[in-house]
Design a protein around this nucleic acid. Structure first.
Lengths: 217, 217
DNA sequence: ACGTCGACCCTACAGTGTAGGGTCGGGGCA
DNA sequence: TGCCCCGACCCTACACTGTAGGGTCGACGT
């Protein structure tokens, strides 16, 4: 009323849109993100968004890439591959827990983001350097990717469930069960690492087993 | 015009509704399942459905339970736990591939179905009988559950992606890449089994490692 | 034969994604 | 300086969604 100085706060970039959408999803869940709602949060009309984002599907994809962009890649020349795996898993899990409402949809999304492919190749290189054969490294990478997928999904939905069933109350219980999830996570990672180590030591055997099972169905 | 004999084909049970919905989702994807669309497929008005199903959320949940109901439980007294694990994984994967359009949503759904819990307990019992301690069995079960989650999701989305990028053409290529996925699956299962076997042989070491890692973050 | 009841249909409403056209303010050129 | 153009924004409109509320009608117990 005194002075409505800037008729244009910011030129409404795609990144600003993604951030605002992410904030809404974080607060109210992905199903209550609508173009009008998002536009209102940006102080803008719904249709204006379409000048920077072609459709809601594309908006979602952009949100996913924004989130995944926060995942730091593992350095390829790290010392022990085991530690690299643990670190990557930890980061991935942390990201899933930072955006629990988006992550399931991100993961279930049918299109792969560029970041995903990058991470995949990085992992594969690490395992190859560790001594796995090309096929084994590729398979192990896919196995890790698969496991990470499940890991993120379970962590995120568990967090959502817990948040739903109790309010924002009982931080000690939350801390305890979070610690439990943390231990579960570490246990699972060790399970995978142990499997890969065994595969490293006896590649013939693993290959033979692989061929022996899973022909029917 | 000659004779519109049955004014009521069937009393429109919930199961019939779930089946019809499942058929639509299989054909056209989950986002194009609407109450009106479903009603049309059933030869009925949209609102009639609400006399058997309280809401669309409940409809979805019912669909998920219907799908999961097709998963045969592993017999608890099977011989080798390894084979039980392989069989369960195979069935789970097969189910994910039979309903690729629903499965991601089923898995990402925040509420657990009764069947899920049943399977969980069954698995835990198998691993305990195999010789794992109670905590280790429970953790391994959660790890397997996590992995199965990722497995199903990856298998389903891969199938969807492949179907989208090519039409219904090129069955040989499809068969080849399906075989590849099959081998990936077997490899991953063996990875997990190897990890559990190691955990069986040296429970101290695994526990120590678990405690050693993953404190930060 | 009548009352009751439950399964079904219809209308209506608020909310969704988005196509198409209108409006206005600032930059390139005479 | 004046003019034009163009791109960023807004508004209206449409076909669709889930679903609340009430109306209709056929079958059944007495």
């Amino acid at each position: 009323m005194k002075a409505q100085a800037p008729p244009r706060r910011q030129p409404l970039s795609p990144d600003r849109i993604y951030r605002a959408a992410l904030a809404i999803i974080d607060r109210e869940g992905v199903e209550s993100l609508s173009m009008r709602r998002l536009a209102a949060a940006l102080g803008v009309d719904a249709m204006s968004i379409y000048h920077h984002v072609p459709s809601k599907r594309a908006l979602m994809q952009g949100i996913y890439e924004t989130v995944l962009g926060e995942l730091p890649l593992p350095a390829p020349d790290d010392g022990a591959w085991q530690e690299a795996l643990r670190a990557l898993g930890r980061r991935f899990r942390a990201l899933a827990r930072r955006y629990p409402k988006v992550f399931p949809h991100l993961i279930a999304s049918a299109e792969a983001t560029a970041r995903e492919i990058e991470i995949y190749q990085r992992l594969c290189a690490i395992l190859t350097r560790a001594g796995l054969s090309a096929v084994d490294a590729s398979r192990a990478t896919r196995a890790i990717y698969t496991y990470a997928t499940g890991l993120a999904l379970v962590a995120a939905t568990a967090l959502c469930r817990r948040r739903r069933h109790q309010g924002a109350s009982a931080p000690p219980d939350d801390a305890r069960s979070r610690g439990e999830g943390e231990q579960d996570f570490a246990f699972s990672i060790e399970l995978l690492i142990a499997g890969i180590e065994r595969c490293l030591r006896a590649p013939r055997k693993a290959a033979a087993r692989t061929r022996a099972s899973g022909v029917s169905s």
